[in-house]
């Protein structure tokens, strides 16, 4: 019951965040000094066409009225119609979000799989060569621009070595798996399509590494510092004094306790992966939300920008919720309230 109450409070929080985000985004997107009608219709549009466009998108109404119209649509599940693609924003998001979700999950998995062991390794070998290597790589990961990294990764992994595909979600001449979730890897598994599975996994490697490098660095550094703190605790000394094997001391007694701050970082990282995928998606021709958001922002497509922002406003708190649930499992003290 305590857990359900906790969940209910978080859901109310998400709704509050969405309202706040919608107000702020709506206000910002409508006060920027450029005209969406001119941006959409271009140089050749007549004054009549611009007037008609404004009326169609309610741009000729007071801002408060525009907002209420928009919220009225939202309550009916209508996110509006994109100025750029002329499609329902909800349909556009449904097309592009699974691709970003898949890429972000892959990047996060890679970051966890590499980041946590590296952090542990670095802490255990503190001040020695492995520690130096991990810290150096983490420093590079934290400071390298994604766009540059992407070009290097694609230049090496695709252009020079030819080990991985250069872009897209699946090979040009391989049919995507039938849609179940929109995640190609999951859909390939569900439908038993091994050709599509192989292709979609290979296509994930380079963009996931690129997108996940920063998170890997972050997770490694956080794991290292919390491991160092934990390994200095009395109970670790006690565990060693009891004669437990070093592996058991480090992983069972050390890592589990050190993971709590790392989980926080993982949750925050997942949110930033979703929004940080813009450049990675552009470099790797990944048909995801980031590219949709960029194209929408450039063309002043405010219904689409609002849709993307609201989606992010849902995803971020959900990621935080997942972190809290993980806390609940990792740290029994939180279960006592």
């Amino acid at each position: 019951m305590r857990f359900l109450g906790f969940l209910a409070r978080r859901v109310v929080g998400i709704v509050a965040v969405m309202i706040g985000v919608s107000v702020i985004t709506f206000a910002i997107s409508h006060v920027i000094p450029a005209d969406p009608a001119v941006a959409a219709l271009g140089d050749h549009a007549t004054a009549d066409q611009i007037t008609a466009f404004r009326a169609e998108y309610h741009l000729d109404r007071p801002l408060a009225e525009q907002y209420l119209t928009y919220v009225g649509g939202l309550l009916h599940g209508d996110l509006g119609r994109s100025i750029r693609t002329r499609r329902a924003v909800a349909d556009d998001l449904a097309d592009s979000f699974p691709a970003t979700l898949e890429l972000s999950f892959a990047a996060l998995l890679a970051a966890i799989a590499v980041g946590i062991p590296s952090g542990v390794w670095s802490a255990v070998f503190r001040g020695r060569l492995p520690d130096f290597v991990v810290r150096l790589l983490a420093l590079i990961g934290g400071s390298i621009p994604v766009f540059w990294l992407g070009l290097i990764v694609i230049g090496l992994g695709y252009y020079q070595l030819g080990w991985f595909p250069g872009g897209g979600r699946i090979d040009l001449f391989v049919d995507p798996p039938p849609t179940r979730t929109g995640l190609f890897v999951v859909d390939s598994l569900l439908t038993g399509d091994l050709t599509a599975l192989r292709s979609s996994l290979l296509h994930l490697v380079l963009p996931a590494l690129t997108l996940g490098y920063f998170s890997t660095a972050l997770i490694a550094r956080m794991t290292r510092s919390s491991m160092l703190e934990v390994l200095g605790q009395d109970y670790i000394r006690t565990a060693r004094a009891k004669g437990l094997r070093e592996r058991v001391v480090i992983f069972r007694h050390g890592l589990r306790n050190a993971l709590i701050p790392t989980v926080t970082i993982i949750g925050l990282t997942f949110g930033s992966l979703l929004s940080g995928a813009v450049l990675t998606e552009t470099i790797f021709s990944w048909p995801g939300l980031g590219r949709y958001a960029t194209a929408s922002a450039v063309s002043l497509d405010f219904p689409a920008v609002l849709g993307v922002t609201l989606l992010a406003a849902v995803v971020y708190p959900l990621a935080n919720l997942a972190v809290d649930v993980a806390y609940y499992w990792l740290d029994p003290r939180t279960q006592r309230g």
Partner: peptide, 16 residues
């Protein structure tokens, strides 16, 4: 899933 891949970079090489 990955085994038959010979040259994933080339569309024609991995094409089905």
């Amino acid at each position: 899933a990955c085994a038959p891949a010979t040259s994933p970079g080339g569309a024609s090489a991995t094409a089905t």
